[in-house]
Structure formats: structure tokens, C-alpha cells
Design a protein around this nucleic acid. Structure first.
Length: 436
DNA sequence: TCTGGGGTCCTAGGACCC
DNA sequence: TCTGGGGTCCTAGGACCC
């Protein structure tokens, strides 16, 4: 690693490494003949999850419908997202970063922060050269292009990495921050969303620089803690540390599903919620977690959410125990005169199953039975597919797992009742029979 | 941004307790 | 019974992120 010696002072040197069109790039790396061609992932959901730069040039964006992609770009290659594979790329990417500094924050599947502070002397080169070496290693070893930002706080490093995308490196020393902030609209700042941007605009603040230049009394008067912190970061004061702890558990697990057309049919909505519950519980059990609470929510046609949180009698990740909360919660929040487009379930207060303490009043035998039942359910699902066994109230959602989307009719044919998507026999256990 | 799915953190306000 | 003042915990809801 050699390069020009930096003339700037770096109170902290923080990198933001951001992979370019990550999912699409992984596909192109695995499949060289996809290179140079418009590649899109997200086929399974019907929505673009990632678009290669070739596809972006044709006007394809994240969140766009797949059928629109076909219209504007008939030779686009449309692939389902393969998260397992992308996660492997991600792991390798983080490994490479850790060769340069132990302070690596795995921010998301395709982004990381790296704290390089103090590493230029031992390496006898500038921070910029370290960034170049990192970018080079990732390109060589993974065939993936990343954009890198280098600055003295995370918020500004984020701005820097976006500055020359794809494949760029941008260093913003403390003395030059204002030159960059001048060109950034407030809503493009990490941590400032549409609501806060609208508020700031009311005060005539349009750019990141105008925001940074506001005095502290204004900021304290009008903004809450998260935005005050962003303001400090924009002014070069490092508030957000690079957090090297790996995230290995969840505080909440949620499952939600949108369906069209919107519905106010009681049984249909209960079926959706029950399936949400089953999916959330499957994920919780896979991570060895039990929930202490549950939230049931509905989203109306005009995007209004209502929900209710309930505390469980004892920690659980078992749909047959939790089903009663679906019924109870639904009863509280359902308004038959509204049409709903989405249902969802959130498991809250998650704790590792082995840490659960049972009180004298808990029926430990019953808990153990439940564990055994779901142990078998999970094994069967592993062998025969998800939802091989399900609670009968979710039947309506299991007959047409994807009826959401194109079917206008919620009725179903009786002959299909006990058949899975591929004609396999399915068992719809009545709710009370799953209890052993 | 005419809107899919899965997360995190913060705040205001009420209940309850000295 | 009315009166202070202050702390903690919980809940509902908002806002933001990828």
C-alpha cells in the first residue's frame, strides 16, 4: 500500500463501504455471461430488489414492478433473489475488511463501516491508500465493485460513499466538509427522512450545509435526540461509534403480507393473520427464541395501521398457543367497515429458549408437550416443505399462498382443501387437535 | 417513492410508588 | 382530605433504515 501522504488531519478516519447494486453484482460475479447485461433480482416478489447498472441505465429502479421491467427492457434478465448466496458474498466482504482493521461494523448485507483511526502510521500510507487497497482486494477476490467514502464521522462517510457511485472513492477531510454538504439536499442525509426533511424545509433549510450551519439552540428547540446527533455529525463531531459487535439475535420478529384486492372478510383476515403467526413462529424457533409479547396489526386500504400489543402468560413460539391472541387482538382492532390490504404479526420481547424461567404456576408438562409437538412439526416441514402442517384457521391462506396478487376472489374450491401447491396431500389439523 | 417486507430506536404520557 | 415533588416502568405511536 503506497500513495501520497495526506496533508489533512483526521481526528477519526471512518470508512463507509457500500457495494454497488449488490444482489445483481453477485449474480454477475457468479455468472460471467451476465456481465454487461441488464440484470434484475426480485422475481419471487414481483418487485425489483436490485438492478445492475446496465438495468438502471434503462430507467429501472428499486421497488419497481417486474412486469414494468419487462415492458421497458424486454431483454432484462430477471432472477429470484438468492439471499443465501448473497450472504456468503457478504461474509467474505466483511472478512476482507477485517484484514485492514478489527473495527468493522456489519451495517447491512451490503454495507459496512470501518474505523481506520490510527492505522496510517503502522501501514506507512494515507487512509485513502488503504481505501484503495480494500476496494482492489474486493474486486480481485469477489469480483464485486464497491464505493467507498472516507471522513471523520459516519454520517459524512455515508455522504462520501454515495458521491462517486459506482466504483468510486471519496475522501472528505474535516476542512472540506462544507464543500460537499452544499450539494446534498436535507432528505438525502442518513437519518433524515421525509417528515423531518419537510419540517426543516418549513424553516427554509434545503441543503445539508444549511442544516449544519443552524445554531445549537435552534436544533435543541425543534429537534429530538436522533436529529441532534446527526447535526453534530455533520459538523464533524463523531457521535456514532463504529460498532464491531456482531448482531446475533433479534428483539422482534415480524411477518406481514399484502393482498389484493383489499378485504374486510373476517375469516379471510384471520387466515392471513394465522399464517403470519405461523411464519413468525417458525423463524423464532429456528433461532431458538421465545416471545413474551405479540402485536397483531392491520393496514387499511389507505395505509393506516392499527395494532394491539398483548403480553403472553409465558414465553412461547407455538402457534397453537398463540392463536387465541390473534382472535382476541383482531376483535379489538377490526372495523368491519374498513377494507384492509395487509395483516401482520410481530413477536416481541424475544429471549433465548434456554434462558426461560418457569414459575411455580406454569404448567411445565404442557410446555414440554408443546415443545415436542413443534419439534415434530419442524422436522416434517424440513422434509416435506413449509406449512405441511398448519393451524386450520390459516387454511384459507394456505390453499392459495400466492392468491394475494392476482386473484380477485377469496372463495375456494372444496376439492382443493387438502391439497398443497403441487398436489401433495396436506393435513389441516383442527386447532384443538394439535394440542396433544 | 403512489407505497413490499423486516428491523431498530426514541418520545410522550399515564400508572404507580415513595 | 388536600397538598408537593420526583422517580421508574410501561405502552402506544412515530420515524427512520436497508
Amino acid at each position: 500500500m503506497e500513495g501520497p501522504v495526506s496533508i489533512y488531519s483526521w481526528p477519526r478516519a471512518i470508512l463507509h463501504v457500500d457495494a454497488d447494486a449488490f444482489f445483481a453484482s453477485c449474480e454477475q460475479a457468479l455468472n460471467p455471461h451476465l456481465k454487461g447485461r441488464p440484470v434484475v433480482t426480485g422475481k419471487e416478489r414481483g418487485i425489483v430488489a436490485a438492478a445492475s447498472y446496465e438495468a438502471k441505465k434503462m430507467g429501472i429502479k428499486r421497488g419497481m414492478r417486474i412486469f414494468e421491467v419487462k415492458k421497458i427492457c424486454p431483454d432484462a434478465i430477471i432472477l429470484p433473489s438468492d439471499y443465501e448466496t448473497y450472504s456468503l458474498f457478504s461474509l467474505r466482504l466483511f472478512e476482507i475488511l477485517r484484514r485492514y482493521s478489527p473495527d468493522v461494523e456489519e451495517y447491512s448485507i451490503d454495507e459496512a463501516f470501518v474505523d481506520l483511526t490510527g492505522l496510517r502510521r503502522p501501514n506507512n500510507c494515507s487512509y485513502e491508500s488503504i481505501a484503495m487497497a480494500i476496494q482492489d482486494a474486493i474486486r480481485r477476490e469477489l469480483d464485486i465493485s464497491v464505493s467507498i467514502g472516507l471522513s471523520i464521522t459516519k454520517v459524512i462517510a455515508k455522504i462520501a460513499s454515495r458521491y462517486r457511485k459506482p466504483g468510486g472513492i471519496t475522501a472528505i477531510p474535516g476542512t472540506e466538509i462544507h464543500l460537499y454538504l452544499d450539494k446534498i439536499p436535507v432528505e438525502d442525509i442518513w437519518g433524515i427522512g421525509p417528515n423531518t426533511a419537510a419540517l426543516l424545509r418549513k424553516f427554509g433549510i434545503r441543503t445539508a450545509l444549511e442544516f449544519a450551519r443552524k445554531d445549537e439552540s435552534f436544533v435543541n428547540r425543534h429537534l429530538s435526540k436522533p436529529y441532534r446527533e446527526v447535526w453534530h455529525e455533520l459538523n464533524g463531531r463523531c457521535i456514532f461509534p463504529v460498532n464491531r459487535e456482531k448482531k446475533n439475535t433479534y428483539h422482534t420478529i415480524s411477518k406481514a403480507k399484502t393482498f389484493t384486492p383489499p378485504s374486510n372478510e373476517h375469516d379471510f383476515l384471520i387466515a392471513q393473520l394465522t399464517k403470519n403467526l405461523e411464519n413468525a413462529c417458525i423463524k423464532a424457533r429456528r433461532h431458538g427464541l421465545l416471545a413474551k409479547g405479540i402485536i397483531v396489526f392491520l393496514r387499511t386500504q389507505d395505509f393506516k395501521d392499527t395494532g394491539i400489543e398483548m403480553r403472553l402468560n409465558h414465553p412461547s413460539a407455538y402457534p397453537s398457543e398463540l392463536f387465541e391472541f390473534i382472535i382476541k387482538g383482531f376483535g379489538e382492532i377490526f372495523n368491519p367497515s374498513s377494507l384492509y390490504r395487509q395483516t401482520g404479526v410481530i413477536l416481541t420481547g424475544l429471549i433465548p429458549a434456554e434462558k426461560v424461567q418457569y414459575s411455580l404456576f406454569d404448567d411445565v408438562r404442557r410446555v414440554e408437550k408443546m415443545e415436542r409437538v413443534y419439534d415434530v412439526v419442524d422436522k416434517l416441514s424440513k422434509r416435506f416443505g413449509k406449512h405441511t402442517i398448519f393451524l386450520s384457521p390459516s387454511l384459507l391462506a394456505n390453499i392459495w399462498p400466492q392468491h394475494t396478487g392476482d386473484r380477485g376472489d377469496h372463495s375456494f374450491r372444496k376439492s382443493n382443501l387438502f391439497r398443497g401447491e403441487n398436489g401433495r396431500q396436506r393435513i389441516g389439523l383442527p386447532l384443538l387437535q394439535i394440542r396433544v
